[in-house]
Simulated scan of single mutants.
Amino acid sequence: MNVSLPEPASKGARTLLRAALSALAGLAATMAAPAAAQSYFVPDVAIFEQVVVGEVEVAPVSVFRDTRCADIRFCTREDTLIVGAVVTDYRGQYEIVLELGRPTYVPGGFLLLTGSATRPAYRGAVPLSEYRLDLEFIPLRFD
């Protein structure tokens, strides 16, 4: 970068001014570059356990539907896991529904139920105390 500057009182002041302008130009270039969105992942969250995921606190509180197959060889339906959760953020507390693999909008980004460490039951329902869920927060970036 070639900038013509008025003559400062000393050579040291001129060098300092050039360094400051160079640093500002580098900062402006860095700010203009798009930042990669960072996601936040929390594995093995139990039902009723409150965890911080990115910019929100989440507590899964119920399982509405779990149609995941225990034995894939005999399964003809799509895996479905739908969970109710309480989210706490700067606005207060509210309830949301999370569905396996589908992002749900929350202020500041998207919350995603990415999986479950709990194996489906062969017969009957899985007790709530055995559920372990994997949650991810993907922040919105407007850079």
Score class of each variant (00 low, 15 high):
63 V>T: 06
81 L>N: 01
11 K>M: 10
33 A>G: 10
84 G>L: 08
119 R>C: 01
43 P>W: 09
9 A>E: 15
88 T>D: 10
104 T>R: 13
23 A>I: 04
56 V>A: 00
65 R>P: 00
73 R>Q: 04
51 V>H: 12
79 D>R: 12
17 L>P: 07
86 V>K: 01
36 A>N: 05
20 A>D: 10
71 D>P: 07
32 A>Q: 05
115 G>C: 01
42 V>K: 10
82 I>E: 14
38 Q>H: 01
35 A>V: 07
124 G>P: 01
114 T>P: 01
91 R>G: 02
54 G>C: 09
29 A>C: 08
97 V>E: 12
43 P>T: 06
30 T>E: 06
89 D>G: 06
57 E>S: 10
94 Y>T: 00
116 S>P: 15
86 V>E: 02
77 R>T: 11
107 P>A: 03
116 S>V: 07
43 P>V: 04
62 S>M: 03
14 R>L: 15
79 D>G: 13
64 F>P: 09
64 F>H: 14
100 L>F: 15
101 G>C: 10
65 R>D: 07
78 E>S: 08
36 A>E: 13
89 D>S: 06
25 A>Q: 13
108 G>F: 14
86 V>A: 03
43 P>D: 07
95 E>S: 08
9 A>C: 09
55 E>A: 12
123 R>G: 13
110 F>L: 09
52 V>A: 04
24 L>D: 10
91 R>D: 02
30 T>M: 05
39 S>W: 11
84 G>K: 05
120 P>Y: 08
118 T>H: 03
82 I>L: 10
82 I>A: 08
8 P>E: 08
119 R>G: 05
37 A>I: 11
70 A>H: 11
11 K>I: 14
60 P>W: 00
76 T>V: 13
55 E>F: 01
46 A>V: 04
93 Q>I: 00
13 A>W: 07
17 L>D: 07
22 S>C: 12
79 D>P: 14
110 F>D: 07
39 S>N: 11
118 T>F: 03
112 L>H: 08
11 K>F: 13
31 M>G: 09
67 T>F: 09
70 A>K: 02
35 A>F: 04
57 E>M: 11
43 P>C: 09
105 Y>Q: 14
95 E>G: 03
15 T>N: 09
77 R>G: 12
71 D>H: 12
84 G>I: 03
73 R>W: 11
36 A>M: 14
22 S>H: 10
14 R>H: 11
105 Y>R: 13
45 V>M: 11
28 A>T: 00
61 V>W: 09
98 L>K: 02
59 A>V: 04
81 L>G: 00
53 V>H: 03
20 A>C: 11
34 P>L: 15
101 G>R: 14
99 E>N: 15
12 G>P: 01
45 V>W: 12
23 A>K: 07
93 Q>G: 00
14 R>I: 14
9 A>M: 14
56 V>E: 00
105 Y>L: 12
38 Q>W: 00
38 Q>S: 07
92 G>S: 10
44 D>G: 12
42 V>F: 10
92 G>W: 06
101 G>Y: 15
86 V>D: 00
50 Q>T: 15
8 P>Y: 04
53 V>L: 08
19 A>L: 14
88 T>R: 13
72 I>L: 15
110 F>N: 03
91 R>Y: 00
120 P>M: 05
70 A>S: 11
98 L>S: 01
111 L>R: 08
26 G>S: 13
65 R>T: 02
28 A>S: 04
123 R>E: 13
68 R>Q: 05
82 I>H: 03
